[in-house]
Amino acid sequence: MLDNLQDLLDPQLFWGYRALLFAGLRFNLLVLATSGLLSLLLSLIICVIRLSRFAPARWLAGGFAELARNTPEYILLVWIHFVPPVLIGLALHTRVAADPLVSATLALGISSSGYVSETLRAGVISVPRGHAEAALALGLRPGTIFRRIVLPQALRRMLPELLNQAISLFKGTTLVSLIAVPDVMYQVSMISAQEMQPVPLYTGAALAFCLIVVTASLLVRIFAERWRRVVL
């Protein structure tokens, strides 16, 4: 029984494929970087529009954020991977194939922007009104006030929370294997199909992700504590 278990759990198998798995991890990190940037950019736009005076634009941006939050990531991923290419193809009368990396970036970026925009908005609201008013009294223009006075303070306040959201985005990047981005889980499923040994590989992957995420959260927690004490 114990022998059997050891055979089933053979960690050598997981470690033996480390080159492939690390190559996969690089794709996870790549998607994390691209979709994280996209999410930040989109969130900034949503946040600015939601704080504007023009009510219909406010509703539109709010609706977009709500839609991004309430659509399951996997459905958004599949939708973006399949629907827009067909529509573009119909419009241009050619065949367009979606690049999995682009689809992954768009889907995860949009879906994350639903949450990040909310965080940014909370950050912007938390900046005392007096700062913007003082800047206005000094003759700064509204755009400059937002860029130079409000946004830096908002980002500084929200940095720990943004890092936490980056961690959940990293967890979300495991989905991209489903549209054939060769990330960790894609490699794991390929290898385990080839070796006919699902146990060590999937267990190894679960433990590896757990380790990465726990370490990252711990670092963020320590960082946030210092950040609050030193910078804020």
Partner: peptide, 23 residues
């Protein structure tokens, strides 16, 4: 609870589906 929260849901899903029956 740390393990449950730190592992991505997709990883957990395939882990439960393919590993648990064997173990």
């Amino acid at each position: 609870s740390e393990f449950c929260r730190a592992t991505p849901i997709f990883v957990q899903l395939v882990w439960v589906a393919y590993v648990w029956p064997e173990l």
